[in-house]
Nucleic acid binder design. Sequence first.
DNA 1: TATGAATGAGAGTTCATTCAT
DNA 2: GATGAATGAACTCTCATTCAT
Lengths: 225, 225, 225, 225
Amino acid sequence: MMQERLSSPTNTFSKLPAEKKAKIEAALLKEFADKGYQKASLNTVVGSLGIAKGSLYQYFANKESIFLYIFDLFTAKVKGMLQRSSGHELPQADLWQAVRRTMFAGIAFIDRYPDFYQLYLNVLFEHEVPQREELISRVRLFPMEYFGPLVALGQAQGRISRAVPLSMVVFLIDASLDRFLQGYARSYLDGGLGLATMGPSELVAEVDLLIKTLKNGLGSHEDQG
Amino acid sequence: MMQERLSSPTNTFSKLPAEKKAKIEAALLKEFADKGYQKASLNTVVGSLGIAKGSLYQYFANKESIFLYIFDLFTAKVKGMLQRSSGHELPQADLWQAVRRTMFAGIAFIDRYPDFYQLYLNVLFEHEVPQREELISRVRLFPMEYFGPLVALGQAQGRISRAVPLSMVVFLIDASLDRFLQGYARSYLDGGLGLATMGPSELVAEVDLLIKTLKNGLGSHEDQG
Amino acid sequence: MMQERLSSPTNTFSKLPAEKKAKIEAALLKEFADKGYQKASLNTVVGSLGIAKGSLYQYFANKESIFLYIFDLFTAKVKGMLQRSSGHELPQADLWQAVRRTMFAGIAFIDRYPDFYQLYLNVLFEHEVPQREELISRVRLFPMEYFGPLVALGQAQGRISRAVPLSMVVFLIDASLDRFLQGYARSYLDGGLGLATMGPSELVAEVDLLIKTLKNGLGSHEDQG
Amino acid sequence: MMQERLSSPTNTFSKLPAEKKAKIEAALLKEFADKGYQKASLNTVVGSLGIAKGSLYQYFANKESIFLYIFDLFTAKVKGMLQRSSGHELPQADLWQAVRRTMFAGIAFIDRYPDFYQLYLNVLFEHEVPQREELISRVRLFPMEYFGPLVALGQAQGRISRAVPLSMVVFLIDASLDRFLQGYARSYLDGGLGLATMGPSELVAEVDLLIKTLKNGLGSHEDQG
DNA sequence: TATGAATGAGAGTTCATTCAT
DNA sequence: GATGAATGAACTCTCATTCAT
């Protein structure tokens, strides 16, 4: 499936030595992650890179296209990670296994690319981000596309409750997943779970507990209804 | 419970006629909600209010203190609404009734004070918001304080599963609640539920379904474990 | 007859001390006259005035509105001069007297406000001048409005040839007048007449000769037709 | 008559394939005509040509020398056209026939090379055009050189009034001619004649009327003096 | 107390020109 | 000879903040 690019760095940029490109991308990502789109300063970037202000405009048309390019890098990273995390699933894979793996993939992503995750949060909530809805839909549709069929399968096979509409199942999984990851990345969002200070094994336990709870529900089994 | 002020409008501001104060507060809220903290322009505000630039600096020390003051107004509004929505609960009130009421209170809040809700989202995710963590903790601790005892009670009485730690119960409820409201306010966050276009009765049904699902869980009742 | 303003300096500017206003207007006019609209640099202006860059933007919305304001000043100056020069004409005034006075008024205008005349030439021929056609029509319609009725009267009374359409009469007068003044202001446009180096009395003679020639024509009187 | 070059493209440029040279010249002319000297962007030109930025600097020393070269092309075109239009005149040719032909040659020139005419107008009135006076004198002397002798002849033979100095005759002819052509190229300069929308035959009639009027004068024949 | 003119750093963007390859 | 990446000064415009009145 071909993915059209919203951004387009110039040929000049494409042909840059990989090392230089990587440095520039890193500096731009850091700036956008730290400050958000609007507040990010290209002055600051060129200053930290030690390149001329005009050079940035040899590489990109304008600030917006720079931002879109950096977001493209994020999209690619996410896609790669999701595909890798689901790569070994068998067709009949279990929904909860998939959720679990995605959760850990998310945690790994945040650990490894905290700036990219920051960037994503910025896009989600900052004002006047260029093409925000388009950008979000690129990333946010993945879980839906990914979990939807698995939920359907689970419902068909009787492992997932047929009493709950598919969209609600996905909503709950997605909300839990998202919020858990947000809480992992920003301690003030973890609702008191203390995720940021957990060691890996504790984290695993917490994830498993979350999934189990989602699956089984919060009520005691005496009075469901 | 005494709430310290983060901001401190001057005496000058306090002694302003209530009507003028209200106008100024409304204009400031609108600007911060529309543009976020960083992009909000005091120039724009004084322009729309028709007051002098210097007057704002007679009322407040600087942009930050203005922002904090407006956030204080939001905090007060939230407290008021939560207290009102829980005001008639009996001590032994059911957790799910409380969640339900909170959900509807949230929806009502968004409908009635969309700008305040926007402001809150800005604070949650915008960068370089002054004293963000402090601000958030003020609002985000409320659900914990509010739901925590109810969950504990439910567990003590056997209505809530004792197998799930209290903090996880609150996390899940809070995550679902927050995400549901975010989805209601920003359609691209509703995960496909279509909340923004629902009529009131549909919304009620959706809330009830969400709560029921939380309570009963996603798994079919044949293979829980 | 009320004249709407295309430009609008702010109240701030209007209330400036007359002396300061005059200095700013003079500096702006000089810059636009020297460099044209596009090349004019507001940096240069504030530098020469010794005011802050931002101050200009307290006075005007943007470069375009600054330019339009300066052009408004020119329009006013032209109107004033034309009215003064035609103020003493009797209703049945002779066309050639009117042309003559206008010519001298133009010369006096160029002598007294060379920068304004420069500005006018810029508008006539520079590229991408904001609202050029509108600006030009403001000034260029004056001669047409002014000479038209006089020519009509002359033709009615038999002093102006009825064989030549009114529009052509006005065209020829206007072209001669314009070109003479352009030649006076820019020596390389005087077609060899050497206007720039003439003393006042020579200039008077030249004007009179031009008018007489226009009136009587270039052909010898033996072979008209 | 040898014409020195003001500009000097490098040998590299001279040895370029004629076709490539022509393309480059056309692109440069278009840019200078569209934007004027100051605003013309070499970036734009190399972009549209698809050649390297550095190549332009292999061909020319700098922007100024590029501009002067393009103007040289214009000068050559004008000379060619004037010579062709006067090529078949006999020595005793009539002044008015010459004026008429020049007028039509001008119209044809504008129709065929609108960009070159634009370029000429730019030079006439734009500011800070390099060596403007020198450039203008090259083109503006042609009419004088051309008409001067014919006027002298006409006066000697009694067909042109001896009461009017030769320089004034040429001035009037030149002014009318120039202004007519300017009005043809820029409708807002035609003084209401409506030249831009005329068909060919109307245009011919208008030219003839203009010449006849110049020749015979504007006064009625009853009271010349 | 209220005013609003003045400030000046900093924003994104453009462009002619250079020079190592 | 051709390339095109790099430069950096200059541009218009914005804004929170100050302070004399």
